Amino acid sequence: MKFSRIAAAVTTAALAPAVLIASPAFADGPGAPDAGHQPATTTPDQSVPDQAEEDRKTILAIIAHPMASEYMKEAGHKAIADGPQAMRKFIEVDQHKIRLDDYRIAISRLTADAGPGLKEGINKLLSGKHDIDMLRHFYEVTQYELRDDDNRVEISRLIGTGGPAVKEAGKKALKGTPADRAQFLKTGRFLAQASDDRVELSRIDESWDGPILSEAIGKLLNGSPTPAELRHFLEVTQYELRDQDNRVAIAKIIDGGGPELVKAGRAALAGTAADRTEFLKTGQHEARAKDQAAKDKAAKDKPTPGKDGQDQGNGSGSGTGSGAAATGNTATTAQGHTGAPLATTGAGDGTTLIAGGAGTALVAGAGLLLAARMRRAGAQR
């Protein structure tokens, strides 16, 4: 009996919860929760909302990444708006496709300021097979290695063509870090070049004779020019001012010059800056030589005054004297006379004077002959 009581008690205790829960009185009794105040759902029922919230946070992190393009951001926001399934698809599929395109575009844009080595690396990567990991490694690592190689080549070129300051700074950068080399090409080279440009401008000022260029150089160096202003002066302005000085010099040279010199000088002034430089270098000397040759020829072809006078004095009625007078040589001196020049009235006056002198001589000769005959007649008587 004692064992039977224990078994019955155990059976009753086991069945009591099931009966109470299934009883309509328990379900609908005064102690039942009202509609809208049911107990919270179990943990398995809460898994979907929790996953959606995690997906939303993941998408927000993805589109906040510096590498996220506008297309990535737009697609992420759309997935969040479309709900849990769209967010899950974006995370598992869409973001990877978009990221692949984003890296391709970003790597392609590197060519804008890339050197030869980097450009070659980009073309080789994009033209071959590649995945997201290869693209990411190239963008984050390889591009900087190739840039540094290109920087080394460029610095070596500058050292070969630059002045003392550029050479010194460039060699120092080659021995430094990639950042040192990038900094040298960004700013250091221009500061070093400015130092060399100042030295070059001083040298030009000492060797140039023109006042316009020299004055401009002095004004520039006494101010506070930037490296860009110094470079522009050397590459552009100095040649404009040189040409102005050359124009002034040519104008002075042809002032009062011979025909050929004036002709060549005017042609140079109407020509290019190179024409003016060439005139000052060689053209003026060639033109002067032509003018001198023409002058020497004219002097050689012109009769000498002494020879003309001798011919006139020896002409005895042959007409040489009258012919010489007709040439206009009005400073001819009569031979055997007082030494005073003849009147400058032309050929007619000179001929009359000569004829009058001849008539006087004939009359005097006839008188002497008559006197001699009379003496001889008296002696015969």
Results as ranks from 00 to 15, higher is better:
G188F: 09
R189H: 06
F190S: 04
F190M: 10
L191M: 14
A192G: 06
A192S: 07
D196T: 03
R198V: 08
E200A: 15
S202P: 06
I204M: 11
E206L: 13
S207P: 00
S207R: 12
W208A: 05
W208Q: 05
W208Y: 04
G210N: 08
L213F: 00
S214E: 00
E215R: 13
E215W: 06
A216L: 00
I217C: 01
K219T: 15
L220R: 07
L220N: 02
N222M: 09
S224C: 02
P225C: 05
T226Y: 04
A228W: 08
L230C: 05
H232S: 12
L234D: 00
L234Y: 05
D245H: 10
D245K: 04
N246V: 02
R247M: 04
I253W: 02
I254G: 07
I254S: 11
G256F: 06
L261I: 11
V262N: 13
K263D: 05
A268N: 09
L269V: 05
A270F: 00
A270Q: 10
G271I: 06
R276H: 05
T277N: 01
T277K: 00
E278L: 13
K281W: 01
T282C: 01
R288S: 10
A289T: 03
A289D: 11
A293R: 08
A294S: 05
A294R: 10
A294Y: 01
K295L: 12
D296A: 13
D301A: 11
D301Q: 09
D301P: 01
T304L: 14
T304Y: 11
G306M: 07
G306I: 05
D308N: 06
G309R: 09
Q312N: 11
N314D: 14
G315V: 10
S318T: 14
S318R: 13
G319H: 03
S322A: 15
